[in-house]
């Protein structure tokens, strides 16, 4: 019963969001595209990095691959085929990265993804300067921003659907085990490297598609624009603020942080990266498992205290702490 209600609520929410362009102005649609884009990015990032705890710093590498593929091929193929092509390229790159690093300790993966965006940016720049002779491309599509918004919304819904199904499946269980203790997981006969590779590829393809769908919003595309490291950074802090191990966690983190970022970049264009950096460090310190986890721990503690008062016993410190421990 609870599941059906939850699914119905999600369906109504997405239907409401789909109707948004009918009553929002141009600015509103632009804002919603950014917002849904980041919700999708953070959710896709958490799909892999949440349960496995392999921190990927390469979000913008895949995002940029998507955007650049569209700018290079949108004139030669129909729009959906271009999106498919972008997804294929994203898949290829993610498999290459995954095959090289995911069978090793997590730190190799982090290091490899850390410089990946810079590597691809330099390669694209080199290719454009030496082979095509132009740096920067104009991108004029025939459809308006509401089509971009609807495409993103579908991708967002699909991402949540995948996240929901994974949590309920054997794959989700396998991922949790890898995150808790990879050695034990391997001894239980789990093909850990293959599970990680599949999830990383899936998450990367979604991120690539977000970049590909959003590309027409820029009209002018250049490597420094679409490979901007701030995108990786924002995705990471959004997912962590909400809680990367939960289905709705990244979305809960993405909405307030996106609005904060919009406000900061409009009012403090020179200082926003300092403010965001400090905020991010504060999140790692104070809420290492995210807001949702923190709130759940709080309510669990309040509930246990209330039931104890009803039974007529005084709250004990040890028990309160136990409830907090159980909540994780």
């Amino acid at each position: 019963m609870k599941t059906i209600l939850g699914l119905a609520a999600a369906a109504i929410a997405f239907a409401g969001l789909a109707a948004a362009p009918l009553y929002l102005g141009t600015y509103g649609i632009g804002l919603m595209i950014g917002l849904i884009g980041y919700v999708t990015l953070a959710s896709a990032w958490a799909l892999f990095s949440g349960p496995t705890r392999f921190v990927s710093l390469a979000t913008v590498a895949f995002f940029g691959i998507g955007a650049y593929t569209v700018s290079a091929f949108y004139e030669s193929f129909p729009p959906l085929m271009v999106l498919g092509l972008a997804a294929l390229i994203g898949l290829g790159v993610s498999l290459l990265v995954g095959l090289a690093t995911l069978r090793l300790a997590g730190v190799y993966f982090v290091i490899f993804t850390f410089g990946l965006a810079e590597l691809i940016r330099q390669l694209v720049t080199w290719y454009e300067v030496n082979i095509t002779g132009t740096l920067g491309r104009y991108l004029f599509v025939s459809y308006g921003p509401e089509v971009v918004y609807w495409q993103l919304l579908v991708l967002c819904a699909v991402t949540f659907g995948i996240g929901y199904l994974i949590q309920r499946s054997r794959l989700g269980l396998a991922l949790k085990m890898i995150g808790d203790d990879e050695v034990v997981a391997e001894h239980c006969g789990l093909p850990t490297a293959r599970v990680k590779l599949a999830l990383f590829a899936l998450s990367s393809v979604i991120i690539t598609l977000v970049g590909a769908i959003q590309a027409p919003r820029w009209t002018y595309i250049e490597p420094t624009i679409v490979f901007n490291p701030t995108i990786s950074f924002l995705t990471l802090i959004m997912a962590l603020l909400g809680g990367a191990t939960r289905l709705w966690g990244p979305a809960v983190g993405a909405v307030p942080l996106f609005l904060l970022f919009e406000w900061l970049s409009a009012n403090f264009p020179d200082h926003y990266s300092i403010i965001l950096g400090l905020l991010f460090m504060a999140i790692v310190f104070v809420l290492p498992r995210g807001v949702l986890d923190f709130l759940e721990g709080l309510t669990a503690r309040m509930k246990s205290e209330r039931s104890r008062q009803a039974a007529g016993t005084a709250p004990e410190h040890g028990k309160g702490r136990l409830a907090e421990g159980e909540a994780k």
Partner: peptide, 17 residues
């Protein structure tokens, strides 16, 4: 390891900013 990676990643943006 995860905590230090995340914290120094934040520090990177502060110093760069």
């Amino acid at each position: 390891e995860v905590d230090s990676i995340l914290t120094t990643f934040g520090l990177l943006f502060v110093v760069q900013g």
